[in-house]
Design a protein around this nucleic acid. Sequence first.
DNA 1: GGAACTTACGGTTGCGCAAT
DNA 2: ATTGCGCAACCGTAAGTTCC
Length: 614
Amino acid sequence: MLTDESDTGIRNSRHTGCKTLLDHSLERTEEVMYVEEQVLISGPFSIDGSFKGCYDGSEKGGCTLILPQNETLGRGSLFPIGNICNLRVNCEDTSLSERTSDVYLVTDSFGGNFNCDVAGPLRYLFLLDLKEATLHVSRDGQQLYSDNIIVNCTRIPSSIHPLVTTERTMKMTLSNDDVPYTKGYNSRLFVLLVSGLVLALVLMAGLYAMQRRNYLKKLNNSDQQNDTRISSEFSVHVTDAAENANIYSEISPMASLEFDIDKGTILSRIDEVILSVLQQVNDNKPPVLSHFNRSTWLNVSYDENIGLCVNDAMKMTSVRFDSKQSIKKFTLMMKLLSMIYRLIQTGSFCTKRDLYYQDTTLFGNQTALDEALENVSCMIQVPRWRLHVLATSKGCIAGNLCFHDVDGNYVDCSQTKAGIQVPSHIEGLEHIQTDADFVLVVEKDAIFQRLLSEGFCERMRPCIVITGKGFPDMNTRMLLNRLWREFSPKFYILVDADPYGIEIMTVYKYGSRSLSFEAPMLTVPGLEWLGVLPSDIQRLRLKDDSFIDLKLSDRNKITDILARPYISKSQLLYKELNVLLDLGKKAEIESLDSISTSFLTNVYLPTKLKHGCS
DNA sequence: GGAACTTACGGTTGCGCAAT
DNA sequence: ATTGCGCAACCGTAAGTTCC
């Protein structure tokens, strides 16, 4: 444990990152040329490897790339212009890697690429500037290519750090961790250094954007020449924006909506966030992430054609790095940005659960990740599924519907006795076909299964029956939304005659507050409430033992729903909620069994479908 | 010191699964 | 068979934190 200043000073002499960063300032023309060359040779893949000696530019580490068999040799063809070399940086210097409470904000000078590595409850934020390191490219044990890149580490100064408020505290903390840091950090030098870094990044981002445009142009030209095989150097892992745009425009007419965002735009939005963080650090201010508040009704208004959507109020939420409250959230969001960046770059998809298991210690629980993910999605204004993060579906569907899933498998929902799980990648569904006259949404699986077992789909065909099993997940809502947009069947819903059943109905029809920014892709405004209506309790004269008294929480929920924006536009909803309050009773769908076990499928549903809902 | 903001927590839906 | 937990959703409120 270091306690005296002289010892600290000796260790400081090893910290040469700052010096290296200065040496790479933009004033030196040859360095700009050097970086430019790196852009020219950067590749579209993730290089998994490690860098040693982040603290000392003289100790260059390296990473190794094993090429696929059919990859092309040579620098120029191996790393096409305009693509991103996603270098994974592992600081193996014990002073970094053994600490479990730091944030590493990694940027590189090759075009705005970044990587954020976070471990445990953080204490310090580091900027790692990738300048030069050894890059080995090999195949079958034979080295094809190598180059040098230097990695620098810079720590955010204590003046803008939330938990290290005094010089003394910082020194002690560092001593305990045996970390070779400067005592009394020179903030002016730091600002100078980071200024250089930011300037370099901005310049390189511009350069990168220009070269990326050239690359896209080149690719488009090659497409026009009917060269369906993208040249070999591009063929691996490249999911091009233009290519995506074409795919999505074929899949769905939604392509014209703002939700059709190409890969390049998403990556550049993440770049902007990172540059913004760097700029704030450069200005000696604590980094702040900002997104519109998802938990206030002030930001939400009702649109008849969409449902709940974001209005102009745009009350913002700040996630501050210098706030004890927000620092974990800040960390998770930065980590997720990094993970998402890689997913989009590589064109791969994963589930929220997969992300969670990549760092369970950091996330702590699934809920934290879910929340951070929605916030990231909200912050960069890109729907979650566009971020290549999916959720395991819980919905089931059956009836007159066929499609090809994302793997190209043909799925026929009529050939099932218990329903088919709603796919996780709704946008990836192709060749959707249905002749259904109506779609029946059912609150719970028990009723869904009963309808199938009693042959509802055959009797009432052509139709589709779907359940979200309680509050619906996004995939189920997206599928319904897509069916609603691309086909024009009637949409009906069957839920319990209780406040939560009604709320589930409103989530399908109007959307939720917290996901209101994605409402155009999630809601079915044309959905009609088939039953069970609270007024049915009276009208059908259900037996007393088939319904339950409202609890206080039920009454509170009713009051909440009555205060929502869509209530004034729905007389039926307003009326039925008041009926529920007046009755002081609630009923489940199963309550209809008190009349007859076959009443639901033989009488109730056919009658309502034939003569209307109310 | 109070207002404003943010987070944690609790409560709700339904279902599946493993332990009891 | 029952119970508890996890998962995927929804929301409001109380408590804690920050700002002015």
